[in-house]
Design a protein around this nucleic acid. Structure first.
Lengths: 193, 193
DNA sequence: GTCTATACTCTGATAGAC
DNA sequence: GTCTATCAGAGTATAGAC
């Protein structure tokens, strides 16, 4: 797909920037990470880094896209007996990387503003997750594990909401066990009525 | 409690600043609101406004404290047959003031950083809400409306998390009905096992 | 006690040289 | 593709008028 060596190098450099950024932010948190620092970490000037991205906001959007890529590759694709376990695994993993949780929370919140450059990205991301989780619930209903009377879409939205909200609570008080709470919600949903 | 007239004036001015700020932010959203603009809105210079607060962060913390004050006074204190209705009422009201939802989401997320000046404020706020909601659940258990086998504390945390997470989803897609979803979660919890 | 004016630092953005 | 230089805007700090 690469048309020239220079193009391929550009792509490789972009990847390097994103991977390094995930690393730096995982260590330092989002709040203390400016574009200049990320530039230093890959040996570029601030302007040099922004050559690859149109703005700070697009840069961070791409960092999060890369993170999703890593997470889905590592935790969700496995052949699991219960697909919801992949969801729990991501959440369990999140408590190992507080800086990235902070990054996600911060950027997704900023992107709620319709004028934010990453707004469409997050709208789309949530729609995808709603679809995937809705299907997951319907499958469990078909398998007889969840009451078929329950509303799969509302349950899917509630799970995503709970996962997001628990991140806030966990960041404020790390003794809150995110995965435990989400699993408890799953238990509430799967119990026989 | 005021020791002198001037002191009372200072308190009144602080109140005016907070009330006006809530107004401006409700209209313009958080992202577009700088300290300078809030200062203009009350006829002060930026430094003049920050005379009343030690920093931008403390200012916004106090704005949110004021908002909690207004909300609990207006929606929760009423003598309700089902106390959870007060909770629903606040959520329903929130969808009338998107700018304030944005403000809350943004500042509470920033305050997740342990170094943020408002960190302790939010830790405390969440602990209070967890306590109140936990009691609410236990009361319903005692009244026979919720299965006494369920874990009241985890349910309380899940409700707060869902409410927070639904704000994100609603901001990204206003067709999501926050109050409807929280009421559905309540329905899940109150159904007989 | 209240407030203005000013200056300082840091951020992200951008133009233009190489 | 990358740097240097520079910019505008943000928040912060302080000296001093009233």
């Amino acid at each position: 797909m690469a048309r020239r060596g220079s193009y391929a190098k550009g792509v490789a450099k972009r990847e390097e920037i994103l991977t390094t950024a995930l690393d730096v932010i995982a260590r330092n948190g989002y709040r203390r990470t400016s574009v200049r620092e990320l530039a230093d970490a890959v040996g570029l000037s601030q302007a040099g880094l922004l050559h690859y991205f149109s703005s700070k906001e697009e840069l961070f959007q791409e960092i999060l896209r890369k993170r999703d890529e890593v997470d889905t590759g590592g935790f969700v694709d496995n052949d699991l007996e219960h697909p919801v376990e992949g969801f729990f695994a991501v959440i369990r993993h999140n408590s190992e990387v507080p800086g990235l949780v902070q990054l996600y929370a911060q950027v997704s919140t900023e992107a709620c503003d319709p004028d934010h450059p990453a707004h469409a990205f997050f709208v789309d991301r949530y729609n995808q997750f709603r679809g995937v989780f809705g299907t997951l619930v319907r499958d469990e209903q078909a398998a007889g594990n969840i009451d078929p009377e329950l509303d799969a879409d509302r349950i899917a939205n509630l799970f995503l909401a709970a996962a997001d909200g628990l991140q806030t609570q966990w960041m404020l008080d790390p003794s809150i066990d995110m995965a435990d709470h989400v699993a408890y919600l799953w238990q509430l949903v799967t119990r026989k009525a």
